[in-house]
Write a protein that binds this DNA or RNA. Structure first.
Lengths: 114, 114
DNA sequence: ACAAATGGAAACGCTTGCGTAACGATCGGC
DNA sequence: GCCGATCGTTACGCAAGCGTTTCCATTTGT
């Protein structure tokens, strides 16, 4: 079910949502952090540091740091994998789901205003 | 002409575009910088530091720094206002327009894939 | 003409993210 | 049972952004 956008609509949407995020959200997540968060919540688990790093095309410490920051904000959680204790499984949280729900609403509402 | 999106589409779109930006764009602009850039290119001029600061709800030095960074990247330009030499008028550049054109294409293409 | 107000930049110390390179813990092959 | 490979984290020095405050140039009001 594709979404057809004109160039003006596409940029207008990105503009409006970015603006609202800057104005409203004091958490001030980086683009990378947002990408990690969305990957975790929209793609079926399990998620590992290594997997996320490969998906985003970044190094592992970048993911570790993103998880540190977002973990402190309560947006994600980390659990050791008991089947292979080298792995860390990244878990979703209620607060993280709530954050993305708000982001979704923001995109939807700004889309309507175009 | 509104754009109607389901929650899944809205988040999926944001996810896909963020992911591509992280993977492709080495410039790594912050959310604030992107918001400034879009404001400059989508809203009719003239744009001033003070005006942008008010629109984004941030302090003036934040805008000055964003313009420093994006100016070094060639995405925007600054010119003193000759009618009131206290003001600085922010100008668009070819490179900046190109950057946003690519961003627009990215949003459009990811929208089609939903 | 001169004092107050305005616009933008610079200075300051601080926080946060970066890339690279190491490091401990754990697993797998032999 | 080891030795090499793998996973995530930590350490390090560095670059960039932050908020606050100060500063300079310019304009406005009287």
């Amino acid at each position: 079910m594709p979404v057809e956008l004109t160039p003006t609509q596409a940029l207008g949407l990105w503009h409006a949502v970015s603006l609202e995020l800057v104005r409203v959200d004091s958490r001030d997540l980086t683009l990378r952090q947002v990408a990690v968060l969305l990957e975790i919540y929209l793609v079926p688990p399990p998620h590992t540091v290594r997997g996320l790093a490969a998906t985003l095309g970044v190094t592992k410490p970048v993911i570790t740091r993103a998880l540190d920051t977002m973990g402190a904000l309560g947006l994600v959680d980390r659990v050791r994998d008991e089947r292979d204790r080298r792995n860390v499984i990244i878990k979703r949280t209620v607060e993280g789901a709530l954050y993305l729900e708000k982001l979704g609403d923001l995109v939807i509402n700004q889309g309507r205003k175009l």
